[in-house]
Structures are given as C-alpha cells and as structure tokens.
C-alpha cells in the first residue's frame, strides 16, 4: 500500500531525542571551535595591524592559506595528514580545525572593526597621556567589539553548520548519527529531517541570542552622531 508521502514521518517525533547526545557533540565542537577561533582571531588581528612587518606578514599569510583552502581539507590535514608526526583523536581534530579555520575569519572581523574606529579616538586618548596599549584597551577595543558583534554572530552560525564536517572523521555528532540511524533503519529521509530540525533549533537560538546582544548594544548607541 502506498501513501502520497513515501516516508514515515511519524517516526520523526518518536526518534527525535535519539539525537540528544549527538546534538551535544555538535554543540561542544562548535563552542570550543569558536572559543579557539576567537582567541586565534584576536591574536592574528593584532599581528596583522602591527607595525612589525614580520608579524603582519605572518598574519596575512595565515589568513591567505586558511581562507583559500576548504575546511574539509584542513580537517583531513589535521586528522590524517599529521598521523606521521602525532595522532590526534577525532574530537580534538575537529575542534582544532574549526578553531584554526574560524580564527582566520574572526581575525578579519576584529581587524575591520578596530580600523573602523575613528583614529581621532586614539589621538584623543594619547593626547591625554594614555600609553598606546592602554588607549587601545580602554578606548578602541570596547567600541570595536560593539561593531564586531553582527559579523561575529554570522560567523558563529557558519561555524555551527561547518561542525557537520566532523562527521567525515567519525565524530558522533548530528550528521554522522543521522546517517548511521538512517542506514540501520532504512529511514534515511526521516533521520535527515530530524538532523535538519536539530540544526534549525540551534541556529535559531544562536540567531536570537546575537540579535539580543546587538539590540542591547544598540540602545547605548542611539542617536549617535
């Protein structure tokens, strides 16, 4: 007997929470990857705007290589390519790859928002006797961070979805779990729909959170001329 819809959609709510642990993995890879990315990004951003040509060239080279190659390749280089030197288990491999990859993008976000702050701010702080580093910390960075929030939020959402690439190196995250449960039950589509719903829930929460932060920051910026 055939129905109009060739899939058994009733299993979606039934099996939905089979994916809880996998979703937790996805969340962990993403969070740790983003944290690593933020730290790398901040360092690389400062290196790139540094007056020292060695530092700025190193940073530029890093960004050139990482942005110019696919994340999947980077993941394979860390997981498979490094085996002759050191064997890194799947989960840390995924976190490292995601961190290095996002570091390059986040560096550009930070750099852009730092240089977008009017140079007069730095000049004003310096003229009041503040050393460069302190003026940077107290005057430029707080303002730059505000401007970095929307593009950072965007990058976080991309990172969340990119974490699915970890399925290729056997990290039991959402996508891999979907494929496994799909092939064992022959209900591929049903399982993949569940995976899609999990992703949508997580990206929605993230979008909402970024939106809230943005809104709060904007309140203090109102009527800024």
């Amino acid at each position: 007997m055939s129905t109009i819809i060739p899939w058994n959609l009733a299993v979606i709510p039934e099996r939905f929470f089979f994916f809880r642990d996998a979703a937790f993995y996805t969340l962990q890879i993403t969070t740790l990857g983003i944290l690593a990315g933020l730290i790398i990004g901040l360092i690389v951003a400062f290196a790139k705007i540094a007056k020292n040509p060695i530092l700025s060239n190193l940073a530029a080279g890093y960004i050139f290589i990482i942005r110019g190659t696919p994340l999947l390749l980077q993941l394979f280089i860390i997981y498979y390519g490094m085996t002759t030197v050191v064997t890194i288990p799947p989960f840390p491999s995924a976190v490292i790859a995601l961190g290095i990859h996002n570091g390059a993008y986040i560096a550009e976000v930070f750099r852009g928002s730092i240089i977008s702050i009017d140079y007069g701010q730095m000049e004003a702080a310096r003229s009041l006797g503040m050393p460069h580093s302190r003026a940077m910390r107290r005057i430029v960075l707080p303002q730059a961070f505000k401007r970095a929030v929307p593009p950072l939020g965007n990058q976080f959402i991309i990172a969340l979805k990119d974490s699915s690439l970890a399925s290729t190196i056997a990290v039991p995250e959402l996508l891999l779990r979907g494929r496994q449960l799909g092939s064992s039950s022959f209900m591929y589509m049903e399982m993949l729909i569940i995976v899609a719903i999990w992703y949508l829930i997580m990206t929605s929460v993230l979008t909402y959170a970024v939106h809230r932060v943005e809104k709060r920051l904007r309140v203090s910026d109102r009527d800024q001329t």
Binding site: G120, Q121, A124, P142
Partner: peptide, 12 residues
Amino acid sequence: GLVFQDYALFPH
C-alpha cells in the same frame, strides 16, 4: 590639552 573639531569624545 587638545580639543578636536569633531570632539572625539569617547562614546562608550
């Protein structure tokens, strides 16, 4: 002490 044309006050 410097006073700038565009004030350059710290908005935050």
